[in-house]
Design a protein around this nucleic acid. Structure first.
Length: 733
DNA sequence: CGAAAGGCTCTTTTT
DNA sequence: GAGCCTTTCG
């Protein structure tokens, strides 16, 4: 089969441009994944490049798996040698192989957010800082932000400019020490440490540079600085770097993704070829117009013209209901209508929402009406307490240095080792500069000195018992299959009795059974390999990876997770001020633009039918509140909408405030000048910029302006030396 | 030491 | 409303 035959001219151009850097700006539904897949196939089949010399980075493991499947179809051969995966998975692999060079044991564990938080708390405690005054979550996030920007504790120390940052620096420093003591890497470390490895070991970098002749990166708009740097390093030799992204679909800035990467790309690779994919193959004309109405209100974007040859399609349905329950019922009844009247099945339908908590009302209603559904995410399987407990046992067996996991299980199920004892062990470990595990071993030996007096013989016995348990399991781990090992853990800890005694015990035990069946998939490997592979998998899987496409059931999913997917019928629920856009974005125009992009991502998932739902009341936390309809709804041209619900009954809708930012009541005319959103301005100091938001204060205008060079600033119209400029100004150039 | 009860806070998105 | 923490009592 000819790899190029099925591509349109722009797609073909993107596939054939194999020499040098390429930036593909691809709108939703423009065949972006197809282009990447075909490009790899083209490299292998037409250019004779071995898959061994190609690296392709995807956003999720699922996307990676799908690409591998499609490639094998396209090429008619397996492509095992191809490096394909998420940045995190690829980095983990590199670090396992090369970690020795930077003092990272090849059996290092990967800490997730929960582990990170525990470690942050420990660092706080050790530094005698009050966790009430310094919220651990905030510190964790600040550390993560630093790492995503490749700022080491030392670098951080040099740029400290506030008391809070001073604290962050100290916690960050200690946090890293604790990580290294545990032979652990957190998510951010996977990226940062790989970059550092390459920075400090040029001979290792050279090997990888020579290997990867071609590099492809998908969802480029959601990469962070560390990922950008990594890519730049590996592509340093051949510069055959192809990145694909859509700035309008950038929705991960809170994970420190940096849209500037797209802008930097053209600066760092001036010879880059830029290809635009603008033809949409997914949605109807109507859906595309709705999407365009919503996204065009963003100020910080390059206008883009998407088009399609698809039919006009039905108008989008806007449904207003009284509360979340009624909203869920509307979804169910519309789905039933679709199934009976159109050729749409359950698995063609997806319900998307801003926050996971919204899934509850939906689930209850789906259950009540007996409509099958698959829930993506929510309380994530591998995050569940009981599942993490068992994994913690496995981690300790695999890597006894892992202090976080050891602390987690040392008294689970309860064996009389309380917080006080753990503290004693921890200070002993710190005083002797050793791991908690070593402390446990030393202290529980009857002939050890120095600590006995502070621990009762009774406790020492408990510790010795636990130590013996771990030793025994560790010995068994050499011989038993992985599922056998899990059985041993369960048996010796009496975990079943422990968990069945708790609330929802049955359900939790089922989760353990489920975990065991995952473990069984690794039984054919050698015990050592199985444990390593299993632990790696459970650290890096995401919920979306587990989505079963074939099951005939409605998908319930967050807007974030829906990125990259498509469905014939899409329901977006909770289009209300405070939900979508989320209230957290109210005072930050940049975040507000991201909310808008999120809405855009949701809309553009739909192929044929789109339903936008909004309810008058919603009880998200405790008391129920009345919310106004989302400003995004107001941005859609009325002729694209066919209304249902409250609007249907009362043709003259209840007067609701106009949310268009442009028409916010402006203050009394200023003698200088009055500006509105979207105006281009020049500031005597900050240069040229664009107005993102206007806030009328009592006798002034508070402006948020994105300056080309100086970034986003908040200014007062009466004071700022501003002039309005007419000429068209391209923010991104 | 551990279970139970009461009080507190903070409510987003996830590799 | 839930999850987390602290307090209290056995």
């Amino acid at each position: 089969m000819d790899i190029l035959a099925t591509l349109n001219p722009a797609q073909r151009e993107a596939v054939e441009a194999i020499k040098g850097p390429v930036l593909i700006l691809a709108g939703p539904g423009s065949g972006k994944t197809r282009v990447i897949t075909h490009r790899v196939a083209y490299l292998v089949k037409h250019c004779g490049i071995s898959p061994y010399h190609i690296m392709a980075v995807t956003f999720t493991n699922k996307a990676a798996q799908e690409m591998r499947d499609r490639l094998e179809q396209l090429l008619g051969q397996a492509v095992e040698a191809l490096t394909l995966g998420t940045f995190h998975a690829i980095c983990a692999r590199i670090l396992r192989r090369e970690g020795k060079a930077i003092d990272l044991d090849s059996s290092f564990v990967i800490y997730d957010e929960d582990d990170q938080l525990r470690l942050t708390k420990q660092a706080l405690e050790e530094l005698n800082l009050d966790p009430k005054q310094y919220v651990p979550q905030a510190l964790r996030s600040a550390i993560s932000a630093a790492k995503s920007r490749l700022i080491s504790p030392k670098d951080y120390a040099q740029r400290v400019s506030s008391y809070f940052e001073e604290i962050v620096q100290r916690v960050y420093q200690r946090y890293q020490e604790l990580l290294s003591q545990s032979q652990a890497a957190d998510f951010d470390d996977l990226l940062m440490k790989t970059v550092q490895l390459f920075q400090n070991h040029s001979q290792i970098l050279k090997r990888y540079q020579s290997r990867y002749v071609h590099i492809l990166v998908d969802e480029f708009q959601d990469t962070n600085i560390a990922q950008y740097e990594l890519m730049k390093q590996v592509a340093g030799k051949y510069r055959n770097l192809c990145v694909v992204g859509d700035p309008d679909q950038s929705i991960y800035s809170w994970r420190f993704a940096d849209l500037r990467n797209i802008l930097s790309f053209e600066k760092d690779y001036p010879e880059a070829k830029v290809v635009f994919l603008e033809q949409n193959y997914r949605s109807t004309k109507t859906i595309l117009e709705v999407a365009s109405d919503v996204i065009s209100a963003n100020v910080l974007r390059k206008p883009k013209k998407l088009w399609t040859e698809n039919e006009d399609g039905a108008r989008v349905t806007v449904i207003e209901s009284y509360n979340a329950e009624e909203e869920a019922q509307s979804v169910v009844s519309e789905i039933e209508k679709l199934i009976s009247q159109e050729q749409i099945s359950l698995k063609d339908c997806a319900v998307m929402y801003r926050v996971n908590a919204q899934s509850r009302a939906l689930e209850e209603t789906f259950l009540r009406y007996g409509v099958p559904y698959k829930l993506v995410g929510g309380t994530r399987f591998y995050q569940r307490q009981e599942v993490k407990d068992i994994i913690a046992y496995l981690r300790v067996i695999h890597n006894p240095q892992d202090n976080v996991s050891l602390t987690r299980i040392i008294n689970v199920p309860g064996r009389g080792i309380g917080q006080k004892t753990v503290n004693t062990l921890q200070s002993w470990a710190k005083a002797h500069d050793t791991s908690l595990f070593e402390a446990l071993k030393q202290v529980s030996h009857p002939d050890s000195v120095g600590t006995k007096q502070s621990l009762s013989p009774h406790i020492v016995q408990s510790l010795a018992g636990f130590d013996a348990l771990i030793s025994k399991l560790t010995a068994q781990s050499q011989e038993l299959s992985l599922s056998g090992l899990v059985d041993e853990i369960l048996e010796h800890t009496k975990y079943k009795e422990y968990i069945l005694d708790k609330e929802d015990g049955e359900e939790r035990w089922e989760n353990i059974t489920e975990l065991k069946s995952v473990a069984r998939e690794y039984d054919e490997l050698s015990p050592e390999e199985a444990l390593t592979a299993f632990l790696e998998k459970v650290s890096l899987v995401s919920d979306i990876d587990e989505l079963d496409e074939k099951a005939d059931a409605v998908t319930l999913i967050t807007l974030h997770q829906a990125k990259g997917l498509e469905f014939p019928a899409v329901f977006i629920v909770g289009l209300e001020e405070g939900i979508l856009p989320h209230r957290k974005s109210f005072d930050d125009p940049e975040q507000m633009e991201e909310e808008r992009r999120l809405c855009y991502v949701g809309i553009t998932r739909a192929k044929k039918r789109l339903y936008l739902l909004r309810s008058y009341r919603r009880s998200l936390f405790g008391g129920s509140t009345a919310n106004l309809p989302s400003r995004f709804l107001q941005d859609i041209s009325p002729h694209l909408i066919s209304p249902r619900g409250l609007w249907e009954e009362s043709p003259t809708p209840v007067a609701s405030p106009d949310f268009n930012r442009d028409s916010q009541p402006s203050p009394r005319p200023l003698s200088t000048l009055t500006l509105k959103v979207g105006d281009h301005v020049r500031h005597s100091k900050f240069g040229s910029g664009i107005v993102m938001n206007c806030n009328a204060t009592r006798d002034d205008q508070e402006l948020t302006i994105a300056f080309e060079e100086a970034g986003v600033k908040k200014l007062l119209a009466s004071l700022a030396p501003l002039e309005k400029i007419e000429k068209d100004f391209d923010f991104s150039s």
